[in-house]
Amino acid sequence: MNQLWGSMDQYHQIAWHWEIAVYLFLAGLSAGAAISAVVVKKISHHSESNGLVKAGAVIAPIAIAAGLLLLIFDLTRPLNFWRLLVHYNFTSVMSVGVLALFIYFPLTLLLFAATFHEKFSSGMFACFKPIAGLAKSLGKVIDALVLLFGVIIGAYTGFLLSAMNSHSLLNTPVLPILFLASGLSSGICANIIVGMVWFHQDLNINEVASLDHTDKIIIYIELLLLFALFVGMFYQGQEAAATAAQALTHSAWAGVFWIGAVGVGLLLPLVLNFAFSSSFKSSPSKFIMFNATLVILGVLSLRFYILYAGQMFS
C-alpha cells in the first residue's frame, strides 16, 4: 500500500545525540578516575602525593563538569534546565542521577581540594584554603563517599539507558555493570596517561604496571559482559534476537562496535600486551600510554555504539 498517512520521519528521529554519548563516556571516565584514584591512594604508600591519585583528582571534576555542560546543551529547552534541580521524580533514573550528581560533583571538587591542599596555601586561590583544609582533614570520609558515589555514577549511566523497555539493546541488566566496568577501565587509563604526562615525577612505574594489569582484567570482564548481553538478547525472544542481529550487522554502527569498541578498545590492547610484552621492558611508559589511549577510544566507541544502535534498532 502507498504510504498515504504522511511522513514517518518523526519515528526515526534519534532523540539523544553525540552530546549524550560523550556525556555517558565522560561520566563513566570521571567515576572510573575517581574510584581508581581512591583505590590507589588506599593501597599505595605515597598516599595523595601519588601521581595517579593526583591525575584522578584532576580528571574526575573536569570530566564530570564537561559532561554536565554537554548534557544541558543537548536539552531541547536548555533554559529550563534548572527545573531538573527543583522537580524530582524518584522513578526516573535521570532524576535520581541528577541527585547523585548533585552530591558527586562537589565530592570530586573536595577530592581535588584535598589532594592539592598545599596549592591553596597561598596565591590567587588562597581563598579556598579553609575548604582545602577541611577536605584534607575529612580525607577518609571524602574518599569513602567518592568511592560510593563513583560506583553510583558509573552504574547510573547504564541504568539511564537500561530503564527504557522500548529498546531491547538497552533494556538489559548487563548495561549498568558493563558501563561501570568500561568506565572504570577508561578512568584507569586516563589516570595513567595524565599521571605519566603531568605527574611523572610522582609515579611509581610498578604501580602503573599493576594498574595496567588490573585494566586488562576489566577488559576480560567487559568481553564477557558484551557476550552475555548479546547471548541474552538472542534468547529473549524473536524481537530482541532480531534487534541483536541487526545491531551487530547493520549500518555503520556495527562497524563502530566491531572495529572501535571491540577491536581497538578491547582486543588490540590484549593482543599488543601479549605480543610485545618483551619490548614493553625497553620503553614501558610509551607502550602503556599507547595501550591506554586505545582503551579510552574503545570505551568512547562503546558509548556511541550503545546509544545510537540502541535508539535505532528496537
Binding site: A15, R77, M94, M164, N165
Partner: peptide
C-alpha cells in the same frame, strides 16, 4: 519540561515527537 526527551525514547509505542 526541560526537553531531555527521555520520554520520547522510553515510549515503546513511538507515540511522542518533538
Amino acid at each position: 519540561c526541560v526537553g531531555c526527551l527521555y520520554c520520547v525514547e522510553a515510549c515503546p509505542y513511538k507515540a511522542r515527537y518533538v
